[in-house]
C-alpha cells in the first residue's frame, strides 16, 4: 500500500513537472480581470492535487484550468457558464461550493436545523424547570455554600 501511495504521488508529481513550460503569465491583464479569474478559480477544486483549489495550485492541470477560466471570461461567459463547463467534464467534485440539491439538503440546512432544535430544546427545558425549585443547590453541601459565599466575587 505504501508503495502504491508512493507511486501515485510520484505520478502526480510528474504531472506537475510537465507544467513548467505551459505557464501563461497574465501580466498584461487588468487587476479586476485577474481578481475575477482568481475568485472563480478559488471555488474550483484541482483534481490532481490532494486538496487544493485551482487558484492555489501550481499543478499543470490547475494552470490549464485557470487559463481556461480566463479564456472563457474573455469570451464573455458568465461565472455560471464556466462552472457548468467544469461540472460537465469533471462532475460536481470540482465545485468546492457544493450545489444545493436533494443530496446536499442535509449539508446546507443541517446546521441551522440543529441550531433551531437546540434552542427549542433549551427553551422548553428551561420553562419546565422554572416550575420546579432548585433541585440540586443544597445549602447543606459545603461546596455549594462556599460557592454562595463567593457569589459576590464571582460576578467577575
Amino acid at each position: 500500500m505504501t508503495k502504491k501511495f508512493f507511486l501515485s504521488t510520484a505520478w502526480l508529481f510528474f504531472l506537475s513537472l510537465s507544467s513548467i513550460s505551459n505557464a501563461q503569465p497574465s501580466s498584461d491583464l487588468s487587476a479586476d480581470f485577474q481578481e475575477k479569474v482568481k475568485s472563480i478559480s478559488a471555488e474550483l477544486r484541482c483534481l490532481v492535487c490532494q486538496n487544493q483549489t485551482i487558484a492555489d495550485s501550481n499543478a499543470s492541470l490547475a494552470i490549464d484550468l485557470r487559463n481556461q477560466v480566463s479564456r472563457m471570461l474573455r469570451q464573455g461567459k458568465s461565472e455560471q457558464e464556466i462552472k457548468r463547463y467544469m461540472v460537465e467534464r469533471y462532475g460536481d467534485f470540482v465545485l468546492y461550493d457544493p450545489p444545493v440539491k436533494w443530496q446536499t439538503w442535509a449539508l446546507w440546512f443541517g446546521p441551522f436545523l440543529l441550531l433551531v432544535l437546540a434552542i427549542a430544546f433549551l427553551v422548553s427545558s428551561q420553562l419546565k424547570r422554572r416550575a420546579e425549585p432548585d433541585s440540586d443547590f443544597n445549602p447543606a453541601n459545603r461546596e455549594d455554600l462556599r460557592a454562595l459565599l463567593r457569589g459576590d466575587k464571582d460576578q467577575l
Partner: peptide
C-alpha cells in the same frame, strides 16, 4: 453547533460516497 457543522462538512463527501450518491467536494465557500 459550529463544531457539528464543521464535522458535517468534513464528513459529508464521505457520507454521500458511502451511500453511492456521488462524489462532491465541500470547501471554503461552504
Amino acid at each position: 453547533v459550529a463544531a457539528a457543522s464543521v464535522l458535517l462538512g468534513t464528513l459529508y463527501p464521505l457520507f454521500l460516497d458511502a451511500m453511492g450518491l456521488g462524489k462532491i467536494s465541500v470547501g471554503p465557500p461552504y
